[in-house]
C-alpha cells in the first residue's frame, strides 16, 4: 500500500530528513521516499496505517500535513 503525504513548511534538506526520521518510527512503514522539491512524502507499508498516525508523525517533527492521498 502506498500513501502520499503533502507536507506544509518542508523548506530545507534537514526538514526532509526530520520528517523521514519521524515517519520511520512507525513500525508498519517499510519505505519512505521524501522530496524537498515536491514537498511530498510517499510511504509504503504492508498493513493499513491510519492517516491520523501519519499526520501525527509529521507533526512530531514540527510540520503540518496539507493532504494525504
Amino acid at each position: 500500500m502506498k500513501k502520499k503525504i503533502v507536507v506544509d513548511g518542508m523548506h530545507c534538506a534537514s526538514c526532509a530528513s526530520n520528517i523521514e526520521r519521524s515517519l520511520r518510527k512507525i513500525p508498519e512503514i517499510e519505505n519512505v521516499s521524501i522530496s524537498v522539491i515536491t514537498k511530498k512524502a510517499i510511504v509504503e507499508c504492508e498493513k493499513e496505517i491510519s492517516d491520523e498516525k501519519l499526520a501525527e508523525a509529521v507533526k512530531r517533527a514540527g510540520y503540518k500535513v496539507t493532504e494525504i492521498i
Binding site: 502520499k4 534538506a13 534537514s14 530528513s17 526520521r21 519512505v32 521516499s33 521524501i34 522530496s35 522539491i37 515536491t38 511530498k40 512524502a41 510517499i42
Partner: peptide, 19 residues
C-alpha cells in the same frame, strides 16, 4: 513524483551527515 524522493547510493554519506 515518486522518483524525486528515490535514493541514490552516492547520497548516503551526505544524508547521514545531514541527519
Amino acid at each position: 513524483e515518486e522518483a524525486q524522493g528515490s535514493k541514490i547510493p552516492i547520497q548516503k554519506l551526505a544524508d547521514k551527515i545531514t541527519n
